[in-house]
Design a protein around this nucleic acid. Sequence first.
DNA 1: ATAACATATGATGTTTTTATCACTTGATGA
DNA 2: TCATCAAGTGATAAAAACATCATATGTTAT
Lengths: 109, 109
Amino acid sequence: MKHDIATYQLFFGSLANPNRLKIVNLLREQGELNVSQICELTTFEQTMVSHNLKRLETCGMVHKRSEGKHRFYSINKESIAPLMKLIDTHMHKYCEHVLSKENKNHCNK
Amino acid sequence: MKHDIATYQLFFGSLANPNRLKIVNLLREQGELNVSQICELTTFEQTMVSHNLKRLETCGMVHKRSEGKHRFYSINKESIAPLMKLIDTHMHKYCEHVLSKENKNHCNK
DNA sequence: ATAACATATGATGTTTTTATCACTTGATGA
DNA sequence: TCATCAAGTGATAAAAACATCATATGTTAT
């Protein structure tokens, strides 16, 4: 397979942003949420959430479902969920030393 | 497990850069290489390569081995190699639409 | 048809990230 | 021990990514 650097960059860049990361982790935990719910739970502005959800959708990280006025977003379970698990494992093994102090201590599991 | 957003950001940010990505893919393909060899093969400047390798090392994506004047770097096979494979699969399924035209065509496999 | 609500889009000033420059450190051999 | 080669470091100007603002679109209810 041919490595398309620009696509890798788009993919990883999508997860290299703290706000998008929070949205992704929120959807991992909460399942399907609409934009307003994401705004409430994160205290982020609506426009920012929309912009970031669009980017996540472009990369196939989340799915979108319309219902009336609402747009419901959910994590791509088939692909992103297991991927994030792999990364969690990697981070535990290799990124301990860069964990911020507060989290280092009460990191149960 | 506790999600440390800053660590995720560091991790993904490391792969969200085209030059680091090229270095990572080079090490995936070529195995162990020293700094000079990476410079030659990529035509990147030495200082840039050193800076970027340091970041990759911080995240546990590459290993470093000293031999005389040289520093040999290699991909973290246990963790990053399988991770990149998962991502390759994801990109093929969900990121086709964002692939640059040139690569779309002669993307065998 | 119009108001109200939910979400999306485009433009832009600001912040963050990056490559490069000048320099340092460390190792080998003369 | 001095010169040379290999690699690393810190500062900074330039480039890229970002949040926000103003506005647009689409949907439901009145």
